[in-house]
Design a protein around this nucleic acid. Structure first.
Lengths: 419, 419
DNA sequence: GCGATTTGTTCAGCGGTTGAATTAAATGGC
DNA sequence: GCCATTTAATTCAACCGCTGAACAAATCGC
């Protein structure tokens, strides 16, 4: 007689999900705040009570806490309808906590500030080729840009609640960049290099900066900003390498060690062109920026992604045949890979991000054709292929968004802060 | 200024996660019960209190409820250690609720009973070629087998809490089998065909039978039965077709419409052999049972999977060169596909199930070699490839396990039942 | 046998939700 | 213009379930 789950391990985060008395309020704060964040019109306390099943009394008490904590504000222009006492609309506060989103990439540094409502309040970009710059230097410049953004946020009355840094590479739990090939970084300990800077000072024991892969943060940005609905999608970022962020059931899937999304080496031609990874016929060799540029007869394999994408888009718009062919071929390869992923994960949406966002008009038809041809269930349920809403610099915005989103999902952390 | 998550939709399951007063007890029942289920030694009330952060008083009250509901029992042979009052060990009850697992496949019907502890208490198999049999007939035979299993369970003092039926095909939400090619089923409405049978009578408004893809249920079985640890893995089922169950962070991932796991048409040779799906060089054409048998020079493409696997294993053990080559080639193709999936999802374990379980000794080395070669992060973090613990008929056992597992995860549903 | 030690139970206290009653603020009919 | 009606939000006693401490139970070591 086989015995199952005899010795399953409990994930044991010390309390392992036990619900204490105080958790009630903690959980309901999150429920109410999420409700306010998710509504398309400012909801009333009564509406929230009806929607959640909580009592109006409870909702009022919870909302009082949220307003006192500067997470929620009452909307003066209350939307009225019919008879009865007018409801007072509740909206996320636009003068409370905000998130700082940062990005280091091959040819630019970005810092942006996103408030609780999801509005991008500031967006600073510094263009500069960072490949010859040492990681320490690059991070020092980034810190300066971050300080500038922070000052702008403070002038607006905002309080920065944390920061997220997007990096084009593999990042481990501790914020160490294991490998960022296009930047030439290897084992760069970002928190250590930023020690002393304001960014690195822990607040309430919480490290204020999380470092993450740009594809992951871009996918989060798309999750927050995208049209309602898509709860499971693949966000493909076309750069020199090709990365993917995977959102499943409304949550970013990071993988067993946080290294998911490596789609660049999906085998689209197993007996095809050799790849630096040791395999053959990897997607990157057919739909990577270098491959597209070469096929279009353009130099500059090492160009920054947005420059390359712009150049290709210009040529395509002008009707350059070599470019059009190159994009069609790239789209086909991308479609093969995407179809494989969709077959495996049964996704309903694929988002073209990074450089692909700009090239979507030309890539999309071929990608869609391959998907329709190869995805078994496509006949029953169509797959949407669309460009990223946030476009190129979605990683920084997504990172900033993830900071404030964390507050929406667990407001107690913000409300009980000591500072 | 881009605005994010302006109009996100709330999943709105009426209460939308609101935490009522009574939810406290509901949640803590689950926490304590899971703790008991997950422990490798019968834990004491005090131990659970220490582990969860709840008070000993609370744990005692919760445990009283669980014992009253026949979900937990006190283990008489309490495990002692040191000084102090001896603890009373708590174990899952072996005479409470049980799950019924069913499977319809090409050449057999299965019914099995799994109790709360995960022990397989009964396991009935009827061999018969079901391809010439009408779906209604096949289900009638299944219902008879299920009734037999139910009687055996009742004799043991068990109460069946629900049933799960594994089918080798695509199943939709309503339990309709959209397509099961090897059975020759199309749009078979299982609940409708079982109407009138005991299996189909709702208890407390809950449909007693869920129908699911066999690969999904087999993956769940592996999740419950497998060694501690693997929280994210791919379970590949080799049959006439090739299916995969995907477990991410300890939960089965079903996809946007419940049709995830279609790995059989992963492109391993895009310019290769044409496939019935319309694509070219699909995995199924290289590592499917039909392909392996043909490469080994054997007839019987339509053989049931376990027969075919046994025959191949016998030949391989005897050192038949054609068979060994066939298995090596199949392993290579499988390895290409698996490597692609692991790259994408960053899994740490791949389980070979179904017919592959029996063939694992020969497939495993080549699969591992391909994975090591193609998975970028394999150097930092190894990927384990292993045969399924439950072997061939894991789907029925996994289905039965999922029924009792649901009770462990939400005991209130069982405790408040009216029957 | 007695103190030390650990388990499990009992009980007053309390935080937070509940539900009903109350107050607040608007609409609409006459 | 006034009042009944309607809906929103607040107040308050009641109650549910967790908390913490005190207590009883059961065993070990000396």
């Amino acid at each position: 007689m086989a015995v199952m789950w005899q010795c399953q391990v409990v994930t044991s985060t010390s309390t392992a999900g036990a619900v204490r008395q105080g958790s009630l309020r903690e959980l309901n704060l999150a429920v109410v705040l999420r409700r306010i964040a998710a509504a398309d019109r400012p909801p009333s306390r009564a509406g929230i009570a009806a929607g959640t099943g909580l009592t109006r009394a409870t909702v009022s008490a919870v909302v009082d806490d949220l307003i006192a904590g500067r997470l929620v504000a009452e909307a003066e222009p209350e939307p009225r309808t019919g008879a009865g006492r007018p409801a007072r609309g509740l909206v996320l506060a636009s003068d409370g906590p905000a998130g700082l989103g940062l990005e280091v990439n091959v040819d630019y540094l970005t810092a942006c500030v996103v408030d609780l409502t999801g509005t991008v309040r500031h967006h600073l970009v510094r263009r500069a080729d960072l490949r010859p710059v040492s990681p320490a230097d690059a991070l020092a410049r980034l810190a300066a840009l971050a300080a500038e953004a922070r000052a702008a946020a403070v002038r607006d009355g905002l309080t920065l609640a944390g920061a997220a840094l997007a990096v084009p590479g593999l990042v481990d739990d501790g914020g160490v960049v294991r490998l960022a090939p296009n930047l030439g970084w290897r084992d760069v300990d970002v928190p250590a290099l930023l020690a002393g800077h304001q960014l690195a000072e822990p607040v309430d024991g919480v490290p204020p900066l999380v470092v993450d892969n740009e594809a992951n943060l871009a996918a989060l940005g798309e999750l927050y900003a995208g049209p309602a609905g898509p709860r499971s999608f693949l966000h493909v970022t076309g750069e020199i390498g090709i990365g993917a962020g995977i959102v499943l059931d409304g949550a970013l899937y990071r993988g067993a060690r946080g290294w998911s999304g490596e789609i660049g080496h999906f085998p689209v031609q197993p007996q095809g062109r050799p790849c630096r990874c040791g395999g053959q016929g990897c997607l990157e060799r057919y739909a990577g920026q270098e491959a597209i540029l070469a096929a279009a007869g353009l130099p500059g394999a090492e160009l920054p992604a947005d420059t390359a994408a712009t150049r290709l888009a210009d040529l395509a718009e002008a009707g350059d045949p070599a470019t059009l062919t190159a994009l069609t071929d790239a789209g086909t390869a991308l479609g093969v890979a995407v179809a494989g992923v969709v077959n495996l994960l049964d996704l309903d949406t694929v988002v073209l991000g990074g450089g692909y966002a700009r090239l979507a008009p030309w890539l999309r038809p071929t990608v869609e054709a391959e998907v329709a041809r190869r995805v078994l269930t496509a006949a029953w349920a169509p797959v949407t292929v669309r460009p990223a809403v946030l476009g190129a610099q979605s990683a920084a915005v997504g990172g900033a968004g993830s900071v404030v989103r964390r507050i929406v999902d667990r407001p107690v952390g913000w409300l009980t802060r000591t500072t």
